[in-house]
């Protein structure tokens, strides 16, 4: 599959990660699937309740609101994003240990190194998925 971002949605996600520095940012990605495309139509900027530069946890209220509102709006939670401070956009050991949403997208934003990458958790490992940002 391929993850397609609306331009403004992608910009909002990057901006959230910049604003939250030096702490890891995190949030929920909502949209819909169509054939082999995941359309990222909205993000929910969350609070990193761990308030850490090296680990994150999405605040419950935002997570619940995202699930509830997406369902009500005929959309779905596609996955989640978080930032890596001074590290590559590659899943860390803790990312792998904590991953549990099989089939969902985990986007990692590395502002300082190699940009933005998306991965699907297949229950055992992360598989990278291409990202397209609509112009």
């Amino acid at each position: 599959m391929v993850l397609i971002f609306e331009k403004e949605v992608f910009k909002s996600m990057i901006n959230d990660c910049k604003v939250k520095k030096p702490l890891e940012a995190c949030g929920v990605i909502v949209g819909k699937c169509s054939g082999d495309k995941r359309m990222a139509l909205r993000i929910y900027e969350a609070t990193n309740i761990l308030r850490s530069p090296i680990k994150y946890e999405i605040d419950p209220e935002t997570l619940l609101r995202a699930f509830k509102e997406s369902e009500e709006g005929g959309l779905k939670v596609l996955g989640f994003y978080h930032s890596h401070i001074c590290r590559e956009a590659t899943p860390s050991p803790m990312d792998k240990e904590k991953a549990c949403y099989k089939g969902y997208i985990y986007v990692i934003v590395s502002l300082d190194k190699d940009g933005v990458k998306a991965y699907v958790w297949d229950g055992e490992s992360f598989e990278e998925e291409p990202i397209i940002v609509k112009s």
């Binding site: 995190c26 680990k55 994150y56 989640f80």
Partner: peptide, 8 residues
């Protein structure tokens, strides 16, 4: 019961 989303 919803799993939390976390990592590092």
């Amino acid at each position: 019961i919803l799993q939390v989303i976390s990592g590092g």
